[in-house]
Computed example of a mutant assay.
Amino acid sequence: MKKLSVLFAVVVMVVSVSMAKAQKLATVDLMGVLNAMPEKKKADTDIKTFLDAKQAEIKKKADAGQAKLKQYTEEAPKKTADENKARETELQKLQEEIAQMQDKAQKDLQAKQDVAFGPIEKKLNDAIEKVAKANGYEFIMDANSAALVYKSGADATAAVKKELGIN
């Protein structure tokens, strides 16, 4: 019985190794390729500019709110309870406006990223698919993936960059 188990284990190992050898594997440095693409560089610059503008707008509103808060705090002892209550309501409304601006900016940023990076991702995926078919690769894995434990397949990074016309 023990010999049968050992024989079965050896057969499974031989079949597994021969199946693995039959598959043509390659890796690609996705981040390296993406960062080399001019479209990605332009999209990154556009998004940073957009984000900086939104942050400046929110900061301006927040600074104005801080100035008002300081002014109202200093003047509070000299004002009536009704005036202070109205000022408190105004400050709460201003805080809500700032929070809404931040939420809207986050949503706008996500939408801008989706629009900017969608075509880039499609172009990269199309290039990877074309390289895989041209070179007979059955699998192309991201060389930077944490799930990748062993890598001995060919590296398709140069071929994908060539397909995209980048160095």
Rank of each mutant, 00 (worst) to 15 (best):
A20H: 06
A22S: 06
L25H: 10
L25M: 12
T27M: 09
L30E: 07
M31C: 00
M31R: 11
M31Y: 01
G32R: 03
L34G: 00
L34T: 00
A36Y: 00
M37G: 01
E39Q: 05
K40M: 08
K40D: 02
K40C: 03
K40T: 11
K41Q: 08
K42N: 09
K42M: 05
A43I: 03
A43H: 05
T45N: 07
D46P: 01
I47V: 11
K48Y: 05
K48H: 07
T49K: 14
F50Q: 12
F50W: 10
D52E: 13
A56I: 01
E57Q: 15
E57R: 14
I58T: 10
K59C: 01
A62S: 13
D63Y: 02
G65C: 06
Q66D: 11
Q66V: 06
A67T: 10
A67C: 02
K70Q: 15
Y72M: 15
A81Q: 15
D82K: 15
E83T: 14
E83F: 04
E83W: 02
N84A: 15
R87H: 10
R87C: 01
E90K: 09
L94W: 13
L94E: 13
E96S: 09
Q100C: 03
Q102G: 11
Q102Y: 05
Q102N: 13
D103R: 12
Q106K: 15
Q106A: 15
L109K: 12
K112E: 12
K112Q: 13
K112P: 04
K112Y: 11
Q113C: 11
D114C: 08
A116E: 12
A116R: 08
P119Y: 03
K122I: 10
I128H: 11
I128G: 08
E129I: 03
K133E: 06
N135M: 06
N135C: 08
M141S: 09
D142I: 04
S145F: 00
S145E: 00
A147C: 00
L148G: 00
K151C: 00
A154R: 13
A154G: 09
D155W: 04
A156I: 11
T157M: 08
V160R: 07
L164A: 04
L164D: 03
N167G: 07
